[in-house]
Write a protein that binds this DNA or RNA. Sequence first.
DNA 1: CTTTCCTATGAAACGAGTTGCATAGATGAT
DNA 2: ATCATCTATGCAACTCGTTTCATAGGAAAG
Lengths: 188, 188
Amino acid sequence: MIQGMALEHAILVSLLEKPGSGYELARRFERSIGYFWTATHQQIYRVLKRMVGDGWIDVREVAQQGRPDKKEYSVAGPGREVLARWLREPVEPEALRHDLAVKIRGVAFGDPAELIDEVERHRRVHSERLAHYLAGELRDFTGPEAPPALDTGQELQHAVLRGGIAYERMTLAWLDDVLATLHRIGAS
Amino acid sequence: MIQGMALEHAILVSLLEKPGSGYELARRFERSIGYFWTATHQQIYRVLKRMVGDGWIDVREVAQQGRPDKKEYSVAGPGREVLARWLREPVEPEALRHDLAVKIRGVAFGDPAELIDEVERHRRVHSERLAHYLAGELRDFTGPEAPPALDTGQELQHAVLRGGIAYERMTLAWLDDVLATLHRIGAS
DNA sequence: CTTTCCTATGAAACGAGTTGCATAGATGAT
DNA sequence: ATCATCTATGCAACTCGTTTCATAGGAAAG
C-alpha cells in the first residue's frame, strides 16, 4: 500500500515537536497542524490509546493545579522508527474534495441566484482563514517578535504555512471568478 | 447537519447532465467530476443501488452489441427534489488533507535530502494534472473545436475547471518553494 | 449553592471510503 | 484453445472519520 494512517504520523510529529496531552493535541489540530489535517478529540484519544498499546508512545500522569490531571504523551523509540519509515515511503498526492464544486455544476439544474449567498459565505470563511494564517506568519516568522534566525524545523513549518497562505489566496481569487460567472449568467 | 453524502449529489448532477451506467459514472469520476470528487466503482454501484431503492433514480436494462449489457440510470422526480433541497442548504467549506505537509514538518526529525525525491514526484503528478486540465479546457471551452457560445451548464463547468487549473498552478509554485527551502537547508 | 464555562477524558454507534475478491460477456492477438 | 484486455457488475471485510452521549475536576459569576 502507498499510504494510510496519516493521523498517527501527524500525532508523532506533533509530539516530537513537543510532548502533550490528548486535549492539547486536539488544540494543536485546531491550529497549525490542523491547517492541513483535522482531527476531533474523540479520534485523537482513540488513536493515542492504540499507539500506547503498540509501544509507539509513552504516557505519564501529570497532576495540575487549578485544573484536572492530564496524561502527557511522548514519542518512544518504536514511534520514532515508525515515523522514520513512513517518511521514506511515498504518499499518494492529495485529491480535492469540494462540495462547492459539485454544487456549482449542479446549479445548472436549479437557480444560479441562490448559489451566490453560499459562495459569498465560503469567501468570507476563506478570507478569515487567510487573515489567521497571515497573523501567524507575522507572529512566528516574519514579524519583529519572530526569532531572527530560523532553525530547520521552523523553516519547514514556515514553508508549510506559505502553502496554506497560497491556497487561501488562490481560493479567494477563484471564488471571485465564480461569483463573476454567476452574475454574468444571472444577468443574461 | 450541515453536510454529508456528497457522493449521492455528485451522481445526481452527473446523471442529470447525462444518464448512464455505473461503469460510465466511474469513468466520469476519473475525469471531469473526479477533479473535485473521487469515487471507486464499488462505491458507485453500492450508492446507485441504494438510490434506486429510495426512488431517487430509475434503472433500465440496455442491451449492447459488442459488449456486455448495461444498466442505465436516470434521475427520477424525488432525486431532483433531493438535489434541489441540497443546493439550498449550506455546505461546510472544505478542509485540506495533505500527507505531504505532515511529512515536510516531520522531516525536521529525519533527513531533509530524502524528501526531495518525494516532493519532485508530487511535482510531476501535479504537472501532469495541469496539462490534462489545460487540454480539456482547450477541447471543451477555449479551442477551435469548442462551441462558440456556451450555455449555463457549460459556463459553470468551465468555472469549476478554472478552479482546478488555478489549484494545480498554485500547488506547483508551492512545491517549487518547498524544494528551494529543502535545498537551502541541505546546503547549510 | 446553582449555573456556566473551560479543562480533560472516553465509549458507542454510525456513516463513508478503501481494499480485496469474484464473476461474466466480448474482442483481439498468439 | 488460451491469454490479455476492456466492458460491466457486485459482495464482504476492514479502516477511518463523524456524531452522539457521558463523566468529572475546577474556576468564576450570580
